[in-house]
Design a protein around this nucleic acid. Structure first.
Lengths: 342, 342
DNA sequence: ATCGTTGTCGATAACGTTTTCCAACGCTAA
DNA sequence: TTAGCGTTGGAAAACGTTATCGACAACGAT
């Protein structure tokens, strides 16, 4: 079945040299004469020899594989994965994807279990996407994207949530909205915390009293957001605008609004966060905060590779810029109270 | 920097046994007394020992890693990847993703290069998504999803393109359309070939004469499709309907139509193929042929794992069912000739 | 002639496992 | 007592690399 693998020993025999010499020409080490090198090269391409990555890994304590751990392959992770895949091309590393498959309940042990495989077993390092874990005490380097609250433990890449949330809230305020709800994110993530905090501050700065009943948690999740949106839109005094902490929440909200006959943006303005590709496609196209997700993925693996190589890394906490993208889901609010849906 | 890895030797020393015995308890081999086993287990969890996957791989000639090769992480591949990730969970395998990064020019050597790493170097087998390669002569098993034309070389997973294309074309015909264009797919893929062929047959069966000027190739690619769509919609006698060979093409077409002021579905009906998530979100929501992409990904890795394990696999060419999903991009055609956009 | 020096090359010990023996031991049966 | 047998444990050889170090030849300089 498995054809006999051609090994370094075969090459050595065929070329009439020792395995040591073959190894040297493979790794471009000094100390082999030009003609022997040529001879060995010839035999190598002749036999179609390829060094066993596994054996090399065992010997070198380097697998040249990095892992990316995501809770689920939703749009954010997927975009990030694309960036990671772009950055890894030509780097000499491979990318293995671990997805917990959506059930956040499974995340708990799952993350730790894979993290424990880190040092020397399979991967040389890992990118953690929206992790639940706050610190890691294994040997291999780790960088977190959209990190957990208070995770000073490892290098991070994130976006300017503070500015983004301020832009979002102020956009709604500037359109005349006063009853602005918040569809909050995953409570354990720094990004969600910051977005909520700035939302409160911006409202306060505009002199809008804070109304606890206007914040519901959507947890960055479609199903949770659907339920939260339903409460928000069928409550006693419907908000005129919603700041959704991410686009998945916003899009879920859009669907709920449509099913309820609430028109967006006439009856309800919505702004999201992330600018995932879907946000430009949905109806109406979503006004949102752009976060350069793919670039975040690229930066994360670049930083990780530097860490693995032991190279010095200039900034160990990267924060990328966010921008407001105005599309069709937000509109001026004239202040007329249209009351609850009836 | 790297804390000293705890090895099987450490466990053996600590437990007062030999490494052979430790290996036996790890792999549940017969021949170790209950109390020694318990003692070793205790030491293992005590030291937090984890066997080196690399060393195991070297010894066993099995890496427990499978590769998935995609040309690019566009929606189809991404959905397929989700299915693959689902199927792999709990299987004991890991999934490494190779993306060529979109430039089909790079695909040529790229695919072969990674394929050559197959046997024994890093992965135990691979899933090829919309490959350019038709046969592979390396040791490890391979299964192709949406295979190349005439690739009888390896096991395949695809969807019922024949039925899907027939449903699509007949749907348009039954709505009264007669000038039905085709935005064709990647010429080297069996799926594209079949979709085009059935399109022709269905038209012929309905007595509609074939018009060569109505077929343009979009290559399953957004940019190519944009250009093709532009030609199609600005040509001398605009079609009343387009069958796009995949949803990416269809969505690109939708955008071109909008920019041209061609209303969908009033002035132009569009049906896509694939039913990627985006097709439900775009404006108008796309009528399309559903192809169970995630399931295809699951089936592909399941089949591959069986192949790797040497288990017999019942069906080595899987074809999954397709269905017509009618949404908002198709409408009845009253036969009035509205002429070219003017 | 002798002595470094430089340039090539090869033997060999790792790396951390698994597996195949084989040895030792305690039994039971003759 | 001894032969035979089942049970348990260990020694050692792989798996395919790479790095270290020493051997050896050629050579110029003293």
């Amino acid at each position: 079945m498995h054809q006999p693998r051609v090994t370094i020993r075969d090459v050595a025999a065929q070329a009439g040299v020792s395995v040591a010499t073959v190894s040297k020409v493979i790794n471009q080490r000094y100390g082999v004469a030009a003609d022997t090198m040529a001879r060995v090269q010839a035999v190598i391409s002749d036999l179609g020899y390829e060094a066993s990555l596994v054996a090399q890994s065992l010997r070198n304590h380097r697998t040249n594989v990095i892992g990316i751990l995501v809770a689920d392959l939703e749009p954010f992770s997927t975009e990030l994965l694309k960036g990671a895949a772009d950055a890894i091309r030509g780097s000499g590393f491979e990318l293995v994807v671990y997805s917990a498959g959506g059930r956040p309940g499974d995340m708990v042990g799952w993350e730790q279990r894979y993290l424990s495989r880190l040092s020397g077993t399979l991967v040389d390092g890992a990118v953690l996407v929206t992790p639940t874990v706050v610190d890691v005490h294994y040997g291999a380097p780790v960088v977190a994207v959209d990190p957990h609250t208070g995770s000073s433990g490892f290098p991070t890449v994130d976006a300017d949530n503070l500015r983004g949330a301020r832009l979002a809230t102020e956009h709604l305020l500037s359109l005349g909205h006063r009853r602005i709800a918040l569809l909050a994110g995953r409570a354990d993530l720094e990004s969600a915390k910051q977005r909520e905090q700035v939302y409160r501050e911006a409202l306060a700065a505009a002199g809008v009293p804070f109304d606890e009943s206007l914040v519901r948690v959507g947890g960055y999740d479609a199903e949770l957001s659907r339920r939260a949106a339903l409460e928000l839109l069928t409550g006693p005094e419907r908000p005129s605008a919603v700041f959704a902490a991410n686009d998945v929440s916003a899009i879920a909200l859009l669907k709920v609004a449509q099913s309820l006959g609430v028109r967006v943006p006439e009856d309800l303005s919505v702004v999201g966060f992330d600018n995932i590709p879907e946000s430009a496609l949905c109806t109406p196209p979503l006004t949102t905060i752009d976060q350069p997700i793919r670039t975040m993925g690229e930066r994360a693996v670049e930083m990780l590779i530097q860490l693995i190589r032991g190279q010095p890394v200039e900034r160990t906490h990267l924060t990328l810029a966010t921008e407001l993208v105005v599309r069709g889901s937000t509109a001026r609010w004239d202040g007329a109270v249209r009351g609850t849906a009836a």
